[in-house]
Design a protein around this nucleic acid. Structure first.
Lengths: 124, 124
DNA sequence: CGGTATCCTTCTCGATACTG
DNA sequence: CAGTATCGAGAAGGATACCG
């Protein structure tokens, strides 16, 4: 059973695919899109207005990425003019609690973080 | 009590400082550094080996940022040659449960995500 | 050992213009 | 309305060299 001896750490690190998924789903814009869509389905320009200040390009890219990862669904309403609605998926809702927890964490600890920053910037 | 009527959404979005903090603490390398340091304090080159494949520059930048935000502590052991140990702080440990939850989430849902990706890539 | 400094490439992102 | 296409600036990130 000779294992390839762990060099320094005890266990395997975060697997690359897992880290990559978190990168795609927790980035700057995705957090805000998911937060908004957890509240209710939204149209493209509705999201643009709700999330200051995202550009069309970045919002499109973010929505495509979230759609590809199964977090949001893109529903085209063939009207005149065209309407597109974005909704959170069941898979996307499994992220909701985690995002809420992250936001709560920032709220609870922001003061401590700012103290730490002030201390660090002073020393420098 | 005239409120400034909410344009489309019901509440305020994620506050900029909160979002920024999450960006600094949940990025590609930070997650892995925190994950490693939650296990045990580590030396600089120990972290380098434990996290494939981070460069010196990126690791230094990540550690400085985490230190500035009060998540890790930098302890210089004045020996010959110099030794530096990085430890998680009490504030940093408050993130541990969240990171664990995020990693568990990826593990539980990775299969669904991959199915969603395959479906999306097929359609295209 | 634990960095900094420099160069250089890569990629992101915003701005702008145009389309079905 | 909901995008796509293109361009350019700037930041991120790797490679390399050097320092206390």
């Amino acid at each position: 059973m000779q294992e390839t001896a762990p060099p320094t750490s005890g266990g395997p690190q975060i697997a690359a695919p897992h880290r990559e998924l978190l990168d795609q789903v927790l980035d700057k814009w995705s957090l805000q899109v998911l937060d908004q869509l957890c509240g209710r389905p939204s149209r493209f320009n509705e999201l643009r207005r709700a999330i200051p200040v995202v550009t069309q390009k970045s919002l499109t890219a973010t929505l495509r990425r979230l759609e590809r990862n199964g977090m949001v669904e893109r529903v085209v309403v063939s009207s005149r003019p065209i309407a597109v609605e974005y909704r959170i998926t069941p898979l996307g809702t499994t992220l909701q609690d985690l995002i809420d927890a992250l936001l709560r964490w920032t709220t609870v600890n922001m003061a401590d973080v700012e103290r730490a920053r002030a201390r660090f910037d002073d020393e420098a």
